[in-house]
């Protein structure tokens, strides 16, 4: 599903590469934690998958597409197959729960009938029944992140990228968020989650890829956050 072949990314005006010679494969339906300290290259990895950045060298395939060959005007179609969740939720403050989720479908031109059908379904999936008319500022952090997840998932993407989705949320609420991510993963969606949260990584026992200074230093199935052999 995601294939990195010897990928190096160096940002302009920076000496050290943000990612250096990274080669890895993420299979369809996998759940992968991306761990490592700040600046280790987790966000760069996610940005490369979305083609928000181009690699300095190396090849990237996402959902069977060679990103180097993907023309600019086809990038939106790639992104329709990838859902994204962020630490800061990125909801539209002037739209309610339902409108925030529907927005993601409206802007890719889905018919209204389809939107009316799938948005309530996904609201149920993330556990926000009965809150569809709330505005973002009337929701807790956990609830806002659920809305963001619903928005990321409503178009049934093949891949869900989550960049520290529990970074702004207390540990108790984080468990609920992880349950939703797990539920999404069980529908067959590949999930890649960058995180600092050791407790979550340890409790899920999923594949763990650890980055340090832009290099993969560990790739372990059913791993934990810290080094534990």
């Amino acid at each position: 599903m995601i294939h990195f072949d010897n990928v190096t990314k160096t940002y302009a005006n920076q000496g050290r590469p943000a990612l250096e010679s990274v080669s890895l494969d993420v299979e369809k339906g996998e759940f992968v934690f991306l761990v490592g300290p700040s600046g280790s290259g987790k966000s760069t990895f996610l940005r490369l998958v979305l083609k928000e950045e181009r690699p300095t060298s190396g090849r990237i395939h996402v959902a069977g597409k060679d990103l180097a060959r993907l023309t600019n005007w086809k990038v939106p179609h790639l992104r329709r197959r990838i859902g994204c969740v962020f630490q800061d939720f990125r909801l539209l403050p002037n739209k309610n729960v339902y409108q925030n989720i529907a927005f993601a479908l409206e802007v890719i031109g889905k018919p209204r009938r389809f939107i009316r059908k799938v948005v309530p379904e996904v609201i149920d999936l993330v556990g926000l029944e009965g809150k569809r008319d709330r505005m973002p500022d009337e929701l807790s952090g956990g609830e806002q992140q659920r809305v963001a997840m619903a928005r990321a998932f409503v178009n049934r993407p093949m891949i869900l990228l989550a960049d520290e989705p529990t970074g702004n949320i207390d540990p108790a609420t984080s468990i609920g968020i992880m349950k939703v991510l797990d539920r999404i993963n069980r529908t067959g969606t590949t999930v890649v989650m960058a995180t600092h949260d050791a407790a979550i990584v340890d409790s899920m026992r999923k594949r763990v890829i650890e980055l340090e200074y832009g290099k993969v230093v560990r790739d372990q199935s059913r791993g934990v956050y810290g080094q534990a052999y």
């Binding site: 979305l50 005007w73 939106p76 992104r79 329709r80 994204c84 990125r90 539209l92 802007v107």
Partner: peptide, 13 residues
């Protein structure tokens, strides 16, 4: 905000 989300969810240019 709107445009960044639009680009993120794959709205065409």
């Amino acid at each position: 905000r709107e445009t960044s989300i639009m680009r993120l969810v794959g709205a065409s240019n």
